[in-house]
Design a protein around this nucleic acid. Sequence first.
DNA 1: ATGCATCAATGCATACTGTGCAACTTTGCC
DNA 2: GGCAAAGTTGCACAGTATGCATTGATGCAT
Lengths: 197, 197
Amino acid sequence: MTVVGRRERKKLATRTALREAALHLALRHGVEHVTVDQIAAEADIAVRTFFNYFSSKEEAMVAGLAAEADALITEFRARPRAEPVLRALREAVVTVMAAGDLPEQIDALRLVVRAPSLVPQRLAVYAAREKALAEAIADRLGLEDSLYPALCAATALTAMRLVLERWLDHPASMTVLREQIDEAIGHLAAGMERTPQ
Amino acid sequence: MTVVGRRERKKLATRTALREAALHLALRHGVEHVTVDQIAAEADIAVRTFFNYFSSKEEAMVAGLAAEADALITEFRARPRAEPVLRALREAVVTVMAAGDLPEQIDALRLVVRAPSLVPQRLAVYAAREKALAEAIADRLGLEDSLYPALCAATALTAMRLVLERWLDHPASMTVLREQIDEAIGHLAAGMERTPQ
DNA sequence: ATGCATCAATGCATACTGTGCAACTTTGCC
DNA sequence: GGCAAAGTTGCACAGTATGCATTGATGCAT
């Protein structure tokens, strides 16, 4: 996290510049019509250098989600040890959402979440964090290699993705987002079985 | 499903030939080293025609998973109306798995599931079916546009993906797979909350 | 069966993606 | 200052993906 030398600071600045250039262009021209050449030009960085930071333009565009997912895991680990798993996840999600999503960033977030061409990379971002979250859950419970932590991590990340997608589709307040997070967590906690009639 | 004329039959044959050529080459040379040129040559079909059927080689390689996911939804809708949701999902999954995964196909399935470069497309396959499954669940329960069907569909698909990944990582029998499916469904049904200690 | 309309297959041109490699520049440190 | 490590860039090249025009196969009505 902490950036020490000038070298590290410049790398972070370059990475941020590329990501913001990508989102900026996507907002202006639409995600589909942005090329790596344009992104590199906008950030005044060589195309070749772009690929030193991101392996595709899609990866650059979902980098913000990746950072949020990392923050979620960090927050989860920071929750009190005695707190139940879903409770801790709920608090971690709410904290990250409240911290990161300034009003101006929500337009970019909506763009990224809605773009069909970003779906694969966006899902991959969450899947890549499943193992780390599963380990955090296992640590909390003192479990090892059982199905539960992996399942809890995967379904919780899926649930939060779904809630975010639905929330972004209908303009609504932060309060509404929190309510919908609680509703989803409530379903996971109470069990999902339902019988017709 | 039913293929009527010669035209439809030939299209299906071409699609199948391309998919099998892709998997065949992937088994021989590794997923990463297969090119569209090779796939087209192996199937004796023009490269340009390949792109009439699949928008990328990744899509061709995960086409089998897409078919399985479609079958899952069809099976789910075919379950008795009175059956509880997770029960019906369990039966549908078991039916599809037993029907589709011949021993020889499991090597290809393992290859596809393990390949890092296929992760984004593979996840996109499941995500693309979330809405259809959510509608099937909503139909069964007589609900409309509430969070539950979407959440149930998304988490169930995620759970089944996770179980499949874990099962493919450790060579095991079909019986073991059924047990692991039941364990995952059991967690979803009973609720995922856990308190440390 | 003939002819016509539709749809699929193909070749070609072209823009874009992604990576290895080598030259050059900046940074950190003694 | 000067050296080693790390970052940036240009270049070449293989591969991906799509639009467009042409050719060929199919289905159907007459």
